[in-house]
Design a protein around this nucleic acid. Structure first.
Lengths: 109, 109
DNA sequence: GCGTTTTGCTACGGTAATTGTAGCAAAGAG
DNA sequence: CTCTTTGCTACAATTACCGTAGCAAAACGC
């Protein structure tokens, strides 16, 4: 119910302001969203493997976020099982990648 | 208390895994974090102006997130009042900017 | 076939984060 | 002094999230 309620109250696409960026920032601002994109960066993972990669995060949120990302068209569930990035998702992931180098330098501040 | 509890349970820098990226993804994954960076992209804003820009978000979270971003060194409070990005924050913001164009295309999917 | 393992996914109670409204003290302007 | 605006906080209510356990279905081995 938490999932449905979340999907009802929040409007991913178009958001309240009508500006697409806001909707995207809203989606990426939810917990584990960026992390999931990050972990799927170079290979699809099964739901269980993804959970392990995400520091054993609760399957409840992971599933919810996976649904969000799937509805947004960034993630898809392969027919042979396992979650992977779509073409659009890979494109988005390309923008998240530079954060790696940045975080390294940031840590030394 | 929510703020202090948040800062206690979560460890922004270094995080649980020790990898800086995870700490950064964790920080940016909190609500309004990305949005705040976005709204401060080209000019400092007062706390009230920022609130208006963020769709009248609750000042409680905004303040908490502002503290988080300040502790991380991305945002600073100018002596004349008003929140602005630090040099590091501007650098990070440069990586968020491309999301704008991307979101426009994404909306047409 | 039958059991075992793994898949994606969900129920449930507890905890933490977020919301929304109201308001404070301090600093500046008139 | 009065009025406005600053950054910031209290408080209760709602929502999101966590952690454990477990389900049905599909794929394995035998």
């Amino acid at each position: 119910m938490a999932k449905l309620a979340g999907l009802k109250t929040r409007s991913i696409r178009g958001s309240r302001t009508g500006r697409p960026v806001m909707a995207l920032l809203d989606l990426l601002g939810r917990r584990w969203a960026l992390r999931i994109l990050w972990e799927l960066r170079d290979a699809p993972l099964t739901s269980r493997a993804l959970r392990s990669a995400c520091d054993e995060a609760s399957p409840t949120v992971l599933q919810t976020r996976l649904d969000d990302l799937r509805e947004a068209g960034f993630v898809e569930l392969g027919e042979g099982g396992g979650y992977g990035l779509t073409a659009l998702g890979r494109e988005l992931c390309e923008m998240v990648m530079p954060l790696h180098r940045f975080a390294e330098r940031w840590n030394k501040t």
